[in-house]
Simulated scan of single mutants.
Amino acid sequence: MSEIALELRRLTVDIPTDAGMLHAVRGVSLTARRGETLCVVGESGCGKSLTTLAVMGLLPEGAKRGAERMELAGENLLKASPSRLRALRGDRMAMIFQDPMTCLNPSLTIGDQMTETFLHHGKGRRRAALDRAVALLERVGIAGAAGRIGQYPHQLSGGLRQRVVIAMALMCEPDVLLADEPTTALDATVQLGILQLLAALQREMHMALVLVTHDLGIVARIADRVAVMYAGEVVEEGAVRAVFDTPRHPYTRGLMQCIPQPGITAPGTRLGTIPGLVPYLVGEVAGCAFRGRCPHAMPACALPVPVREDAAHAWRCLL
């Protein structure tokens, strides 16, 4: 079995609001191994991005993080000081943020932004940093890389900027790469190229890739394992083929019914929907958060729901 690169056990993120405490992430447990792609999927607002930000120690001001365990390749992140987290970020763990249009500094050249992390972590001198930046830009498919490092972000297209952000995250060869919906702002053709690139780099560098998305097509294309989140918690998790072939949780089945399947869904067929609204997560949240939208809900769903599992995956449901 591959080495565990990232392990979370019962991670919580609470955010104080005027209405009370918002329980945005509720007991999330995930494991990502080196050489593996784990996709975290769910609708907007389910806590996917906050989970990755909690790992990086980049939560918004006032947010409170808690967990039974949070380890990066065996190192306890819960006990890491702010200076230690700064030493880990960009070195052993790195993140690709959602929008390539806004996550690059418009006043700095591509070369300055790419070499900053390399120099900060003492990986070498500026010449070595520039050489590595050029090599990585070439590796992510940017032609004329030596000339690009002197350019500013506004001189690059959205697709090229996304490739720069990926290359920047890989400057120090991290153990874990967290990618938060890295293709959302790109057109479909560019999306495919970026996904293929991420999959190739993950295999080549034997790192753990944790990819946050709401697109099940992306999950089917590149994931080894998938975790389905709803209302701040993981409701189903396992090998991607097992989850797609035999989804156990009603929410997972609802998501699957919302997308057309090539060769199966006939043109003009009405796609499925999930009725109702996401529950309010301020204050106490008891029982299954999906029960208000679930066609199989029963009185017992208002009580704590245990995690059930088989050989291929686990799910949080009484059924």
Rank of each mutant, 00 (worst) to 15 (best):
270 R>Y: 06
150 G>Y: 02
196 Q>Y: 06
213 T>I: 06
66 G>N: 13
312 A>P: 03
37 T>P: 05
248 R>G: 02
223 A>I: 02
304 P>I: 00
264 I>R: 08
233 E>W: 12
98 Q>W: 13
189 T>A: 15
104 L>Y: 08
49 S>H: 04
32 A>P: 02
180 D>V: 01
175 D>M: 06
21 M>S: 03
133 A>M: 02
316 R>N: 04
2 S>R: 06
18 D>M: 00
259 I>H: 04
194 I>Q: 03
36 E>V: 00
106 P>V: 15
72 L>W: 14
266 A>E: 15
110 I>D: 12
155 Q>M: 15
173 E>L: 14
52 T>V: 11
33 R>N: 09
141 G>D: 07
315 W>K: 06
113 Q>C: 03
309 E>N: 12
26 R>W: 09
228 V>G: 08
62 G>C: 12
43 E>R: 00
101 M>K: 05
142 I>A: 03
299 P>S: 12
121 H>L: 10
126 R>T: 00
253 R>C: 05
162 Q>T: 13
220 A>F: 02
21 M>P: 00
239 A>S: 07
311 A>C: 10
275 P>R: 10
77 L>C: 13
104 L>D: 11
47 G>A: 04
153 P>A: 10
173 E>R: 15
216 L>S: 08
164 V>W: 13
22 L>Y: 01
104 L>S: 00
257 Q>C: 09
17 T>N: 05
310 D>R: 05
227 A>C: 02
296 H>L: 14
162 Q>L: 00
56 M>R: 04
286 A>W: 14
162 Q>I: 07
76 N>E: 02
122 G>K: 05
231 A>D: 01
209 L>A: 03
153 P>Y: 05
127 R>C: 10
10 R>E: 10
294 C>R: 13
285 V>A: 03
215 D>Y: 00
262 P>Q: 07
275 P>M: 04
296 H>C: 09
236 E>Y: 04
248 R>D: 06
260 P>N: 03
207 M>F: 12
41 V>A: 15
211 L>Y: 08
70 M>T: 06
